[in-house]
Computed example of a mutant assay.
Amino acid sequence: MVKKSSYFRPLLPLLYLPAFTRNFWVGRLLGLEYMGLFLAGITVLMLVFYQLIPMKIYTEIEIQASDKQVWNLLTDFASFPHWNLFIRQISGSLSEGAQLTVHFQPPGTDIMIFRPTVITVEPNRKLRWLGHFLIPGLFDGEHSFIIEPLASDVYDGLRLRVRFIQQASFQGLLVPLLARRLNIDVRQGFEAMNQTLKTKAERIHQTTITSLNAQV
């Protein structure tokens, strides 16, 4: 059962904006308008900063498996509920321009549902999508998965080792309010998914190598 997410509870202080505005004008009447303008200026600068300079989360892990084996696991959306500890479910077409329905669950939080648009599909190399919360510019998240072959040696057409990179970039007016939780919860979710992907891919890779050796 999908619970209603509490992830955006930090946004509740926005409900106090009317009171803040009222106090600002009271401050003006008391001759403290410059302090109000200073605080307003700091707020505007923070909002501009998070619009122009995105918050980024980067994780990577080395996997003793082929790029194709990792890609097949990463794009087998139907199997996600059985092993993926962060992205619990994905539905939709794996093609550029398509919209996906993605169920995220960072550790210790409820499931959140986003509907990003796929912007890059490079088989065995890269998957990237971009999503928005309500409207563009409020909270935009770009999520990418990159597979980099590391080993120069090849066994029966399979590269033996890859680097798997999972990263995200967040921009928008709400990022300052969510930055701390994003950096903790989402990073932990990335790392949990990376480790489970590594375990499954290496198990498949070892089974494949054993089978190929048996045929020799």
Score class of each variant (00 low, 15 high):
residue 172 G to Q: 03
residue 74 L to F: 01
residue 114 F to S: 10
residue 90 I to F: 02
residue 206 Q to V: 00
residue 49 F to K: 09
residue 43 T to A: 06
residue 89 Q to L: 12
residue 198 K to G: 02
residue 52 L to R: 08
residue 74 L to V: 03
residue 56 K to C: 05
residue 71 W to G: 01
residue 106 P to S: 05
residue 11 L to H: 06
residue 27 G to D: 11
residue 27 G to C: 12
residue 207 T to Q: 15
residue 76 D to Y: 01
residue 14 L to T: 07
residue 39 L to C: 11
residue 155 Y to H: 08
residue 45 L to G: 06
residue 177 L to A: 14
residue 14 L to G: 07
residue 149 P to W: 05
residue 78 A to K: 13
residue 168 A to W: 00
residue 56 K to S: 12
residue 145 F to R: 04
residue 26 V to E: 09
residue 194 N to G: 10
residue 33 E to W: 10
residue 88 R to Q: 15
residue 5 S to W: 05
residue 91 S to V: 04
residue 141 G to R: 03
residue 105 Q to C: 13
residue 183 N to D: 09
residue 51 Q to I: 03
residue 193 M to F: 04
residue 174 L to S: 00
residue 22 R to F: 14
residue 59 T to K: 07
residue 7 Y to S: 08
residue 72 N to C: 02
residue 108 G to H: 02
residue 60 E to Q: 10
residue 147 I to S: 00
residue 152 S to G: 12
residue 97 G to A: 08
residue 32 L to M: 07
residue 149 P to R: 08
residue 179 A to S: 14
residue 82 H to C: 01
residue 209 I to Q: 13
residue 116 P to F: 10
residue 28 R to H: 07
residue 35 M to Y: 10
residue 80 F to Y: 15
residue 113 I to E: 15
residue 23 N to Y: 14
residue 21 T to H: 01
residue 212 L to P: 03
residue 158 L to R: 10
residue 122 E to N: 12
residue 80 F to T: 01
residue 43 T to E: 00
residue 25 W to T: 14
residue 2 V to T: 13
residue 65 A to K: 02
residue 68 K to Q: 12
residue 204 I to E: 09
residue 157 G to P: 03
residue 134 L to S: 12
residue 172 G to N: 03
residue 156 D to G: 00
residue 79 S to F: 01
residue 214 A to E: 15
residue 101 T to R: 14
residue 124 N to F: 09
residue 140 D to Q: 11
residue 156 D to M: 11
residue 167 Q to G: 02
residue 51 Q to R: 12
residue 11 L to N: 08
residue 187 R to H: 13
residue 50 Y to G: 01
residue 62 E to S: 07
residue 125 R to Q: 13
residue 7 Y to H: 10
residue 197 L to M: 14
residue 119 I to V: 15
residue 83 W to V: 10
residue 30 L to W: 06
residue 127 L to K: 02
residue 75 T to D: 05
residue 140 D to T: 10
residue 151 A to T: 09
residue 118 V to C: 07
residue 65 A to N: 03
residue 7 Y to M: 13
residue 180 R to Y: 15
residue 112 M to V: 06
residue 10 P to H: 01
residue 55 M to W: 01
residue 167 Q to C: 09
residue 44 V to C: 08
residue 102 V to G: 07
residue 63 I to R: 02
residue 143 H to L: 05
residue 70 V to I: 12
residue 126 K to N: 04
residue 169 S to G: 08
residue 200 K to A: 05
residue 117 T to N: 07
residue 205 H to D: 07
residue 216 V to S: 09
residue 70 V to K: 02
residue 35 M to I: 14
residue 37 L to P: 00
residue 73 L to H: 02
residue 49 F to S: 06
residue 170 F to P: 01
residue 128 R to E: 12
residue 77 F to M: 02
residue 111 I to H: 04
residue 163 R to S: 09
residue 40 A to H: 04
